[in-house]
């Protein structure tokens, strides 16, 4: 049960941690680094609540080992807003009432961020396709899709 020393860049900060090889990146974020914004839903890659961006790619952090984070760049929900300003996705989720219980929300916002990073002007079908790996049981997706499209517009208009 020896722990491994891992160095990674998390939300722009050089971070070091110790973890057991059997701990997922999600467990490391939540239980070791206290970044509890990434949620555990299914813990098997179905729900997307644990989504993070790993070296620019959207992944389920429950399906990544903490030790695999060595040398990687990781963005979590905690890294999106600045002290002065919410990310446009966060603002639009609020304004479109794209959340109720909120447990899926960090995953959806991180997933949508990965989409907008790659494709700043997605069409509605592209948004729906991209978010197929995220489950929400309260809002019914439509408001989420509208919030993402609106956030894309906000980014384009420099809002």
């Amino acid at each position: 049960m020896s722990r491994v020393h891992v160095q990674a860049r998390i939300n722009g900060e050089e971070t070091e941690f110790l973890c057991e090889p059997r701990q997922s990146l999600l467990e490391v974020l939540r239980d070791v680094l206290m970044l509890t914004g990434s949620k555990e839903g299914c813990n098997n890659g179905n729900c997307g609540a644990c989504n993070v961006i790993l070296d620019g790619r959207l992944v389920n952090s429950c399906l990544v080992l903490g030790v695999e984070a060595q040398g990687k760049d990781i963005q979590t929900i905690e890294g999106l807003a600045t002290p002065d300003r919410l990310h446009p996705l966060q603002q639009q989720f609020l304004e479109h009432a794209a959340l109720q219980c909120g447990i899926c929300t960090p995953g959806f916002i991180v997933a949508a961020k990965a989409l907008l990073d790659k494709n700043p002007h997605p069409t509605e079908p592209q948004v729906r396709h991209w978010l197929a790996g995220n489950l929400c049981r309260c809002t019914g997706y439509d408001k989420i899709v509208r919030a993402v499209l609106s956030a894309a517009d906000a980014v384009r208009d420099g809002r």
Binding site: T36, S38, K39, Q90, L94, G102
Partner: peptide, 18 residues
């Protein structure tokens, strides 16, 4: 805007497992 919305979109809201 939901009164608990800001905490939920920033990942700051504390759920049971948090």
């Amino acid at each position: 805007i939901r009164h608990d919305g800001l905490d939920k979109v920033t990942g700051r809201a504390i759920y049971g497992a948090d």
